[in-house]
Design a protein around this nucleic acid. Structure first.
Ligand code: MN
Ligand code: MN
Ligand code: ZN
Ligand code: ZN
Lengths: 144, 144
DNA sequence: TTGGCAGTTGCGAACTTTTGCAACTGCGGT
DNA sequence: ACCGCAGTTGCAAAAGTTCGCAACTGCCAA
C-alpha cells in the first residue's frame, strides 16, 4: 500500500483514466516531502520511464491539481511547484515578502472563511494549498 | 485629477521611480473596468507610445502588483489578467469550477482570516485580489 | 540648474509553457 | 477475453515569458 493510494482511489471514484504517466507523476510527488517544480517531477518520472515528455508533465500536474490530489505553490520570481495533498495534513502557506520566510498555515484556520462564503454567497469554496503573502512577525518588528 | 492619482501618490511615497512607461501602464489599467491581459495592456500603451516593448509591460505589471496598486487574476487555462486596486472597492473573486461563474467577494469578508493569522502566527497578511475556486450555488443544486 | 548614478528601458535571444495532431490505450460493454 | 472509442500521449512547432546588456533617464544632492 503506497502513500498515494488514497489519491489513486479518489481518481478512480471520479471516473477519470488512470494512465501510467499519471501514476508516475503522482508517485514522484507523493514520495517527496517538499514542493517539486515541473522539471524536478519530469526528472524523477524519466528515471522510471525515459520517454515521458515534459508536455505530458505539464498536462498531468494541471489535471492532478484540478482533481484536488496535488496542490500548487506560486511564488513570484520562482518556478511553480507542486506538493501532495495528504489527508490530515492539509495546509496553506503564508510567505513574507520581506525576508521570504514561508509559514505553514493549518487548514482549520480557513474554516471561518469557508463558512462566511457559504452563508453570504452560497459558494462552496475548495480551499487547497493557498499561498498568501504579507509580513512575518520578525520583519514587522524591524520595519513597522 | 486622474483616477489613478491615489496609486501614483502611493508609488511616490514608496520612493520608487515613476517612469512614463509605469504611468502609462497604470493609466491603461485604471481607465478600465475589467481585468486586462498583458497583451491588452500593451496594445493600449502602444496607442500612446508605440515603442514600448512587451517585456517592459511584463516587468511593469509585476512591479505594480508588488507595490500593491494593481491586482492579479489567474484562472487556469486563461491568460493572467490585471485590475486596478481602487480604494474602497477592494475585492476578491470566487470562481465556479463547474460553470465558470465569477463572484466578487467583498474585502471585509476576509477580515476574520486576517485576524486569525495575526493572532495565531503573528503574520500580517496582505490580502489583495485573491482568486478562490469552488462551486457556485446554482451548480451545487444540480450536482451535489 | 546641473551632474552623477542607480534603476529602468528596448531589443534580441534564450528559455518556458502550450498546442495541434496522428498514434496509442485504459476501461466499460459485450 | 476481446472490441471500440473517448480520452491521453509523444513529438514538433508555436506562443508566451524572461533575461542579458548597452543605452537611457528620473531623481537627488550640490
Ligand atoms: Mn505546502
Ligand atoms: Mn477583480
Ligand atoms: Zn519576514
Ligand atoms: Zn457554477
Amino acid at each position: 500500500m503506497s502513500c498515494e493510494s488514497r489519491a489513486i482511489d479518489q481518481l478512480r471514484e471520479s471516473g477519470v483514466r488512470l494512465t501510467p504517466q499519471r501514476a508516475m507523476v503522482l508517485e514522484a510527488i507523493y514520495h517527496n516531502d517538499g514542493h517539486l517544480s515541473v522539471d524536478e517531477v519530469h526528472e524523477r518520472v524519466q528515471q522510471q520511464s525515459p520517454y515521458v515528455d515534459l508536455s505530458t508533465i505539464y498536462r498531468t500536474v494541471m489535471f492532478l491539481k484540478q482533481q484536488g490530489v496535488i496542490g500548487e505553490l506560486r511564488l513570484d520570481g520562482q518556478p511553480v511547484r507542486y506538493e501532495a495533498v495528504r489527508y490530515g495534513k492539509e495546509h496553506h502557506h503564508a510567505v513574507c515578502s520581506t525576508c521570504g520566510a514561508m509559514i505553514e498555515i493549518d487548514s482549520v484556520d480557513m474554516q471561518e472563511l469557508s463558512d462566511i462564503l457559504t452563508q453570504k454567497y452560497g459558494f462552496a469554496v475548495n480551499l487547497i494549498h493557498l499561498t498568501l503573502t504579507g509580513q512575518c512577525a520578525a520583519c514587522q518588528a524591524i520595519s513597522p
